[in-house]
C-alpha cells in the first residue's frame, strides 16, 4: 500500500499546501494501491496512518527552495534532518518522521514540498510529482 498524506491547515493561508494537493489528487484517477489522506494537523497521530504502508509520501509547505514555483522532493531521512540540532521539544514533521523510524518498519518515506503561497498551477504540479513519487517513478 502507498499513502500520500497532505499536511497542513486548509483554513490558514501559508499552511494549506498539503490539503490543496490532496484536493487535486482526489479529482484524478489514482493508481491501484495508492490512497490519499488529508492529514491536516494530526501531528504524531499520523503514525497510525503510516502503519502497513510500504511507501508514504508527505506533502507539505517548504520554505527555502530555490525556485518558489518548483516542487522539491526530499527523502524522509533528509526531512527528518531538518529538525534543529539542539533538539528538545519540537513536534513538527521532522519529529514525526524520526518517531516513525523507531518502529523499524523500513518503509520508504518521501516529502514533496512547495513554497507555501503558490498558485493553482504549481499546486497541480506538486500533485503530479507526489503521484510520480508514490509509484516510484521519481
Amino acid at each position: 500500500m502507498v499513502r500520500i498524506i497532505g499536511v497542513g491547515n486548509r483554513f490558514v493561508a501559508g499552511d494549506d499546501l498539503g490539503p490543496r494537493v490532496c484536493d487535486h489528487l482526489r479529482e484524478r484517477p489514482l493508481p491501484a494501491g495508492v490512497t490519499v489522506l488529508d492529514g491536516g494537523l494530526a501531528g504524531l497521530d499520523l503514525l497510525y496512518w503510516m502503519d502497513g504502508a510500504e511507501r508514504v509520501v508527505f506533502v507539505d509547505a517548504v520554505a527555502g527552495a530555490r525556485a518558489e514555483d518548483a516542487p522539491v522532493v526530499l527523502t524522509g531521512r533528509e526531512a527528518a534532518g531538518l529538525a534543529p540540532a539542539r533538539f528538545g521539544h519540537e513536534a513538527g514533521l521532522p519529529y514525526l518522521l524520526r518517531a516513525a523510524e523507531l518502529d523499524g518498519a523500513g518503509r520508504c518515506v518521501y516529502v514533496v514540498g512547495l513554497a507555501a503561497s503558490t498558485g493553482e498551477q504549481a499546486v497541480a504540479a506538486a500533485a503530479s510529482l507526489a503521484l510520480r513519487v508514490a509509484v516510484g517513478e521519481t
Binding site: G14, D15, P84, P94, G113
Partner: peptide, 11 residues
Amino acid sequence: CSVHTLRLGRP
C-alpha cells in the same frame, strides 16, 4: 498548529 513550513537550510 498553524502557519508552518519545513525550512531548507539553517532554521
